[in-house]
């Protein structure tokens, strides 16, 4: 039984439903990601952004709807799940590097063991990628010897080295110091410029605006509003989005003259 891939479409989420017991986290959510597209997902804490990403590579089971990668369903418990996950790169908020391996071994593990590629070839590629993110001197360091930003760049290289069809970024700068945020975001921006397909969850609105082809605003597990970054950030249509965006701007009232 063949599956007909829809041309240009990388990822298709249709009518996804996710609940923990009685508590609905994602409700009837549909989203399509096309080749080379960068979709940024924003929204308040607890709106289901991270859960959505975790549902995409079936780290979470879902209670309805489906996720398809190039037409192939991603199903928790299915036999070919590891192979499908190889095509979905994921970068976590807390890096989740393997602490007992060097940077290079972290990157090489999955391409060599899961994809069965040649060690020498993978090493070469890993070193080239590390060089591109400015970590060529850290190849033999252990994660504990790296700064947060360096760890996160390593994690991005680790995902990239698998040659994924799509990259998922789950609030990858949330655990970083402000200065390190920039070095990580620049790497992601660079990937966007190379035409990688990405789904980015972030709280960095400036960055979201710069990188997104399409912004999705999630609230209460539903897509509340979506549009181009200009539309969304400059002319939000819904009250909910306006209120959300307002939390990022600060204004001080005019100074009151001092009374005695």
């Amino acid at each position: 039984m063949g599956v007909r891939p829809v041309p240009g479409i990388v990822l298709e989420i249709s009518h996804l439903h996710k609940a923990y017991g009685q508590n609905t986290v994602i409700e009837d959510l549909s989203l399509t990601v096309r080749e080379g597209e960068v979709i940024v997902i924003v929204g308040p804490s607890g709106c289901g952004k991270s859960t959505l990403l975790r549902c995409i590579n079936a780290l979470e089971s879902n209670q309805g709807g489906e996720v398809r990668l190039h037409g192939e369903p991603v199903l928790k418990g299915s036999k070919n799940l590891p192979e499908i996950r190889q095509k979905i790169g994921m970068v976590f908020q807390n890096y989740e590097l393997f602490p007992h391996m060097t940077v290079l071994d972290n990157i090489m593990l999955a391409p060599v063991k899961a994809q069965g590629r040649k060690k020498s070839e993978v090493r070469e590629e890993a070193l080239a990628l590390l060089k591109r993110v400015g970590l060529e001197t850290k190849a033999n360091s252990f994660p504990r010897q790296l700064s947060g930003g360096q760890k996160q760049r390593t994690a991005i290289v680790r995902a990239l080295c698998m040659h994924p069809d799509i990259l998922l970024f789950d609030e990858v700068t949330a655990a970083l110091d402000p200065e390190m945020v920039r070095e990580v975001l620049e790497v992601i921006l660079d990937l966007a410029n190379q035409g990688k397909t990405m789904l980015v969850v972030t709280h960095e609105m400036q960055f979201a605006r710069a990188i997104a082809d399409w912004v999705v605003f999630l609230d209460d597990g539903r897509i509340c509003e979506e549009g181009t970054p200009e539309e969304f950030f400059d002319h939000p249509k819904t009250e909910r989005a306006k209120k959300f965006l307002n939390t990022f701007t600060f204004e001080r009232k005019a100074r009151q003259p001092k009374t005695i």
């Binding site: 590579n57 780290l59 095509k87 989740e96 063991k113 680790r158 995902a159």
Partner: peptide, 28 residues
């Protein structure tokens, strides 16, 4: 669990995850 998920998200199978990610750390 996060280490396990990290390994799974890279496409490692269950046995590979146990062998290369979980056990070496668990031993230590």
């Amino acid at each position: 669990a996060a280490q396990e998920e990290s390994a799974y998200s890279l496409g490692l199978s269950r046995m590979q995850t146990i062998r290369y990610v979980i056990l070496p750390q668990a031993f230590a």
